[in-house]
Write a protein that binds this DNA or RNA. Structure first.
Lengths: 338, 338
DNA sequence: CGTTTTAGGTAAAACGTTTTACCTACACCA
DNA sequence: TGGTGTAGGTAAAACGTTTTACCTAAAACG
């Protein structure tokens, strides 16, 4: 497999203009001393020949790529896509490029992307880990490539992290529900596998049991519209004495599915069961019963993560992990509670 | 800005094992003649040193990158994320890597990503163009880099395309509505800017006017939950004589917003206004009134596009554009029409 | 037995950039 | 006048791979 066509390289430009390749390189990047006249002739030649610099070569020589990689577990999730948008925003003004890898909840895909980033020697890596354990980041550490973790806390403190306080989120939801009179709160989600869910569940549990109310967990791995719906049918089928009067769902998709099932089964929201979702996706406000939810500052998280990464690339010291706070957005699904 | 640490290169591996770099290269890629014993010692050394090949260097030498780039307008849209998933599936088995660029509906961002792909000399490009006109693909053409367009038809036939028949989609929806007794059909969306919307609108218009029924277009640039909602309020405020009895929305988000507004305004769906969406996203089936929608074979489109691209990279001739057909999924929002 | 193949390996060139170390000519300054 | 910058430029080395063109020894072949 040979190269199909010879590249139009900096050499062609140089010889067309009648200067050395060094001069072309300098002119195009505004370094060194190149006269206005020569520069003009060079850009003309570049245009004419359609020369596009080969980053493989320049990266090889320079030792850095001006690219950073972002690996997230599910870009279709608005939480992550909003983060990526924030990242790209700061990348743009610092003229870095962003390459995003989407692991679709698969640890293997995640590993593939990290390996891609490593082989390509990107200058920095943003990672929202799929599962609890961190993937192997040794290669980056050894090579001194900065890594910032998103939506994850590193217990060892070895990495800079940008996260949201899930405990607080769970607590806010629980306190809101309890204030409205709830006596039996259920958490629906996947706390076994996902650390974020675990935090939300724990925060909720603490607040609920702290006040002496009843707390139940309904495991739905993974939490989707479908499994949320199943959980809803399960709830409505429960004998009244065992049926929770309030539910916190680990994400909005699950909450919407659950809502649909409850309504189909003639369980009124919020009167019989009050419902809180998580993430405040667009559809939360457009649901049958507009959904109370916890909003995470995803855009801001992306911005901050990128800034930390850039700082780290620039060799700044003393960069600290940051933890954001979720915000409760009250809507009709708990409105009678206000 | 120097390289912070010296790379552990193939040379270190070679000298640790006591062979030449050529032998290491051959061993790691299974080419040439390398004895079992030496190979074993080489992989041991690779492990020990944590050697990771530098693709910038290998790409420079080999002239190809084993990567292709995908630029889509909005990866948060399930239609596109499903396409990308299909692409990654075929990439994986052919051991190509996929880099996706998300233009977030911005032509400028799209151009940035295409430029990134070009500078990085990726082996192929999949592009779902943001707007009607194609961005500048000259660089790829000149360099002989294959390009396959997704969800777009190239009138000049100069590019291979993988698209869906939007005219048919519009027609299917219209025929379904007319068969149910609709006499005045409105299309809600953004046909001015988006070619896909234009096709859906046109197909709908043809079928509706063809039968002598009334047809209206309501422009909502862009079509989102919010603008759909506004369109809904607009409709319900119309004097009955001017109010459509059936609506085709250019996407499901808009349809769901519109649905919410109609219900808030006490317009019954489907009795007073029947509603059809487009894309069949997850939320279509979980809506207040489950939404009739048109499903596009997005996953399959991604697979096919990737296969065509690989074929093109391999130099196969006679590759043909392919056009898929949408499928009408009937639910309650038009159920009385069945 | 002599000849060819093959297994196993090497040194050095090549890929397209950027950078270093150097040059020349001219302006400026004392 | 001589010295010092400096503007404008160059040739060649360097980055880390892969590939080409070789080499030697042993095996296979007639």
């Amino acid at each position: 497999m040979k190269k199909p066509r010879p590249e139009v390289s900096i050499r062609e430009v140089a010889s067309l203009v009648g200067v050395s390749t060094a001069t072309v390189s300098n002119a195009l990047r505004g370094k060194g001393h190149v006269s206005q006249a020569t520069t003009a002739r060079i850009v003309a030649a570049v245009d004419k020949l359609g020369y596009v610099p080969n980053v493989a070569a320049s990266q090889l020589r320079q030792g850095y790529s001006k690219v950073f990689g972002v690996a997230v577990m599910n870009i279709a999730n608005p939480f992550f896509s909003e983060i990526v948008l924030g990242v790209e925003e700061v990348a743009e003004v610092t003229d870095y490029s962003v390459v995003v890898g989407n692991s679709y909840n698969s640890a293997k895909r995640e590993a593939n992307y990290l390996s891609l980033f490593e082989r390509h020697r990107y200058d920095g890596v943003l990672l929202a880990p799929t599962l609890d354990e961190l993937p192997n980041l040794d290669g980056f550490a050894r090579r001194g490539t900065p890594v910032v973790l998103i939506d994850h806390v590193d217990p060892t403190g070895g990495h800079i992290c940008v996260s949201v306080d899930d405990l607080l989120g769970g607590r806010l939801a629980a306190e809101h529900l309890l204030a409205g009179g709830a006596r039996h709160v259920a958490f629906v989600g996947d706390p076994q596998r996902l650390p974020q869910m675990r935090g939300r569940c724990q925060g909720c549990a603490d607040a609920v049991t702290g006040i002496g109310a009843r707390f139940t967990v309904i495991e739905t791995p993974p939490l989707t519209v479908r499994t949320g719906r199943e959980a809803g049918h399960h709830l409505s089928g429960l004998p009244l004495v065992d049926r929770p009067d309030a539910v916190l769902c680990g994400n909005d998709e699950g909450a919407l599915g659950l809502m649909q099932a409850l309504i189909a089964d003639n369980v009124s929201i919020p009167d019989e069961i009050a419902l809180v979702g998580y993430d405040d996706i667009d559809f939360a406000s457009t649901a049958i019963v507009p959904l109370t939810s916890l909003r995470q500052p995803s855009h801001q998280m992306g911005v901050r993560a990128a800034e930390l990464l850039l700082g780290s690339i620039a060799g700044e010291a003393g960069l600290e992990s940051v933890r954001f706070q979720p915000e409760l957005v009250v809507r009709r699904s708990t409105r009678s509670y206000v």
